[in-house]
Design a protein around this nucleic acid. Structure first.
Lengths: 223, 223
DNA sequence: GACCGGCTAGAGTATATACTCTAATAATAG
DNA sequence: CTATTATTAGAGTATATACTCTAGCCGGTC
């Protein structure tokens, strides 16, 4: 693999593990057993590394949120979106941690992230529309869709931060990929009132599968 | 005013303005026109300053979330809780910004914050119960109350971060106390399905008053 | 007036961190 | 093989930051 790509992978890994603030360019170089000079040959500065990783993240999420426009959406679609999005969130989890600082210090990132957020929110609204068309959700006014999408966005993007803060005793143990998926439980809780009678029972059952407080061994839904 | 208190006030101010990460102890001292030595006479280190500010925050929110146990809760109560909580959030807004880093580097804070979160969540559940008793909300199962409280917590504590990231063009302009209160709109959106028929109209009207996209000049509800 | 304890100044330090510079080495093209 | 370009090493630097240390001041009390 190219050195440049190795730098990106290792950086992502270390950022995820320790938080961007605790990872220096020298750490990254040392972890790869390359020289700082080498690292700076491939990236002008630390921000450039982060920006590149963000672009990857953006592309990943963008691919996850693609919407088939030829057909309405099913319940399976919805669960697949949720699973995918939380997966992306997990793989790039450092981004949402020091996000404000990162946006403060990198204008590109700030503007880009703003647009990314808007694209995601719009995609979510369109997903809601698709689910309405598919008879999964009851019809919602445009304003309501927007507000709902925003609430889902807030819950989704901050679920991990919550896990970290809520489990103060064990330093990292509280945050596993399994627990992360329990964020789906929270999202389904929020959507439940808008599920049609036809699908209510199915959604309640799905939701049960993500219920918190069962460490490990949760059955996984179809996707 | 005592130097110690001035240090706390100035620190809070600078932290809120620039973010904890961008404020050094030397900055704080310089801003107060005192020597670093003086600052370190009053506080052993930067963490101690932050911890003390957190304790203030905790006390403030604790006082906000007190629940009258002799009577059920009214719609006014609910709005007052929301207004108060967002007010506290605004005044100590730096805390939720670099929270993860702060909790990572200060064990006291980590344990204390975990308990604080739990207390808040429990208080919110009790508020829901009170509102059910007051006929504002329809009865909810305990599990649902818990999940709802958690969703509200997530939206409330991360609303500001969202504002900051969503308004990428103007660096700080996007985040005013007024805009912050629009978080109330989001919370009411989430609660709406559980409002009783009796109060639905009133809640919808209140919610309208916090609707986003009207810069400045929003009429305020009673509290 | 001497003394004492709380308070303050301000120079100074150890460490970290992002980043640079030069020279050497590998890869590649002619 | 040679020339050129891409890559890498590694020592080094400028700056920042949290924090220390010593000496002095100031207000009150005996």
């Amino acid at each position: 693999m190219k050195t440049r790509d190795k730098i990106l992978l290792t950086s992502l890994d270390l950022f995820n593990q320790r938080g961007e603030r605790n990872v220096t360019t020298n750490h990254i170089a040392a972890h790869l057993a390359i020289s700082p000079g080498n690292l700076y040959y491939h990236f002008r500065n630390k921000s450039d590394i982060i920006y590149e990783i963000f672009l990857q993240y953006q592309r990943l999420v963008g691919s996850y949120l693609q919407i088939p426009d030829s057909r309405p959406l099913t319940l399976d679609d919805m669960m697949c979106y949720l699973e995918s999005v939380f997966d992306g969130l997990w793989r790039y989890r450092f981004l949402h941690r020091d996000l404000e600082y990162l946006l403060d210090t990198d204008e590109r990132l700030r503007l880009n992230y703003r647009d990314f957020t808007n694209r995601c929110l719009i995609a979510m609204e369109r997903i809601f529309e698709g689910l309405v068309a598919g008879g999964v959700l009851v019809p919602l006014s445009a304003g309501f869709r927007t507000a709902m999408a925003l609430n889902v966005w807030l819950v989704v993007t901050n679920w991990m931060a919550f896990l970290k803060t809520a489990h103060g005793d064990q330093r990292e143990a509280g945050v596993s990929e399994v627990r992360l998926k329990q964020g789906i439980y929270q999202v389904l809780t929020m959507e439940l009132p808008y599920v049609t009678d036809t699908y209510r029972e199915a959604v309640v059952a799905l939701r049960e599968q993500y219920r918190p407080e069962w460490p490990g061994g949760l059955p996984r839904p179809v996707c």
